[in-house]
Design a protein around this nucleic acid. Structure first.
Lengths: 146, 146
DNA sequence: GATAATAATGCAACATAGTTGCAGAATATT
DNA sequence: AATATTCTGCAACTATGTTGCATTATTATC
């Protein structure tokens, strides 16, 4: 995806939601769409700066919250206890996340889902599932293949 | 378990570890041993106050870190992105946690473990697993039975 | 294209979780 | 009882996240 295509995508997504299309939201959503893994607030801020964008820390928090509210982005709790965000392009809400200990990236594992529940003790009513795996991602586990 | 038995247990565990037996460590470990679920730093501090114990916030952090280092306690990341601690009486390290939305308690689910890994994409090397479930615990889901 | 209503932004200040350095106090060892 | 070592408490600090409010930008309407 080229930058312009991403910007266009971001713009469309924002139009569909009820709210205003602002540079901050466009920028943030663009960054999320371009990212291959979930980004922390800090990573987003840095990327924005590299792109010449600049907005307040608070604005970023609010833009992210808003994107999550609108169902455009996804807020995931990583192993380091900070929130990360990614733009879900039609992904289901409940899926596992893999945190690579080496490169630090977080990957969504859409496939790892149904195997979970069958040994749950009786009486528990499960409403949300969070699965965080840690280890080495394919690229870091076996650098030869890339 | 009565308070004295717990204190005795705590004392023994501390003796076995290499380090000093201090009131703070005894108190903290006692609280953890008496708890049915994983406690946050804040909850431990409150409980300690109720018992007439008093130590600095920092001391508590350090005591907890030390207990974790010694393998006496277990540090788990809850859904609210804060750390919680519990004294693991022979429990395996890798098990799921259940966070009750109503009573806020966190339960360890020792049974929920082996079903996890089989649909993982190839290439990932998993070294740690964190499973956080949210919902209603048996007591809150069906108050009649208690 | 200008105007008005509404919504988003920036700033400052605050809240909470957690960390670090260091002097003084407590523990274990002899 | 004296010593070396290790904890503790204090103060200050960092990082993450939140709130209130005045200012600015967006969008719908004219």
């Amino acid at each position: 995806m080229t930058p312009d295509v991403i910007e266009q995508d971001a713009r469309e997504l924002l139009y569909k939601a009820q709210g205003r299309v602002t540079p901050a939201r466009l920028g943030v959503l663009g960054i999320l769409l371009a990212a291959k893994s979930a980004l922390s607030h800090q990573e987003i801020e840095q990327t924005a700066q590299q792109q010449g964008l600049s907005f307040d820390r608070v604005t970023l928090y609010r833009a992210l919250d808003w994107l999550v509210e609108q169902g455009i982005a996804h807020k995931v709790g990583g192993v380091d206890r900070t929130w990360r965000y990614n733009a879900l392009a039609g992904a289901t809400h409940q899926h596992a996340h893999f945190h690579c200990k080496q490169c630090g990236q977080i990957f969504c594992l859409e496939s790892l889902q149904p195997a979970l529940l069958f040994s749950l003790p009786p009486g528990y009513r499960v409403e949300e599932v969070e699965v965080n795996l840690q280890g080495h991602c394919p690229a870091c586990a076996d650098p030869g293949t890339n």
